[in-house]
């Protein structure tokens, strides 16, 4: 009855008119039909939308969190590494500061001293716990000879008992085979300081009648021909006066901490023995 072309044109016109009618609803009072339609659509579609949106957000959240976690873990590792490095640096700096202070004391001491000295590092100790020697990293090549005195700013350490071209063996004053001619600084009482143990010495041959008290300082007398006069040895820590016998027993705590001996000074021009005038 109608041609195909006519049908298409008519359909288009109807659609346009309907569209116009629908659009015209926006300009007239909203009908209950419209709101019911909106509600119906929302009722069916919105939950799905919400679900999908939630899933996407959840996935996105998980995804981001995973990557955040990976980043955080990586960052954490970096920070830990940096922290370890900083700790190492702080340790190195504090160690350097301690070494610096120790060496400064050595330099000051050396500058103030009238003796020619050479500084050396302690590299090893005696293999036997019964004897007290250390090996230092300076020897004949540095002018060190057997019998030279060894000290640190705190006091005397010992004497060289063996020497090679690059190393020397030092017998510490706490070794029982070592003996140093000494004076009590306050009373000028003379005696011999001998090694006794890990940390102690004995002050032998001090007469009973001589006044020596706990806390008195013992110094080298210079009569033994090894140590120059006036070097600090240790402090009197215990006195025992027996009723019998002509000498008192005196325990001496050296000023030098032999457990922490790291660097020492060897006196290269020990003076000739300073014997008392008759």
């Amino acid at each position: 009855m109608f041609s195909k072309k006519t049908m298409v044109v008519a359909g288009a016109i109807i659609l346009i008119v309907l569209n116009g009618i629908v659009f015209s609803f926006n300009y007239i009072r909203k009908s209950s039909f419209q709101s019911a339609a909106v509600q119906t659509v929302l009722f069916f579609v919105a939950p799905v939308q919400e679900g999908v949106s939630g899933t996407i957000k959840f996935t996105e959240h998980i995804w981001n969190q995973y990557f955040d976690l990976v980043d955080t873990t990586r960052e954490n590792e970096d920070l830990r590494r940096q922290l370890a490095e900083v700790h190492q640096q702080i340790h190195a700096i504090s160690e350097m500061a301690i070494e610096n202070a120790r060496l400064k004391r050595f330099v000051d001491f050396k500058a103030a001293s009238t003796h020619t000295m050479v500084a050396a590092a302690v590299v090893a100790t005696d293999p036997s716990p019964w004897y007290r020697t250390v090996i230092i990293n300076k020897g004949k090549a540095d002018g060190i000879e057997k019998g030279y005195p060894v000290m640190v700013p705190e006091g005397i350490v010992g004497q060289v008992t063996g020497v090679s071209s690059g190393y020397a063996k030092v017998l510490l004053i706490i070794d029982r085979n070592n003996a140093v001619d000494a004076l009590v600084q306050r009373t000028r009482a003379r005696g011999i300081v001998k090694g006794m143990s890990d940390r102690l010495c004995r002050f032998d041959y001090a007469l009973r009648k001589i006044d020596i008290g706990v806390g008195d300082t013992a110094i080298t007398s210079g009569y033994d021909g090894i140590f120059p006069k006036g070097l600090r040895i240790g402090r009197v820590s215990k006195i025992l006066r027996r009723n019998s016998g002509i000498f008192q027993e005196i325990e001496l705590t050296p000023f030098v901490d032999f457990q922490k001996l790291e660097e020492v000074m060897v006196i290269l021009n020990p003076p000739a023995p300073d014997f008392p005038e008759e």
Partner: peptide
């Protein structure tokens, strides 16, 4: 040689 002990003891 390393020790201060009497020579020969080790």
């Amino acid at each position: 040689m390393l020790s201060a002990a009497p020579i020969g003891i080790y």
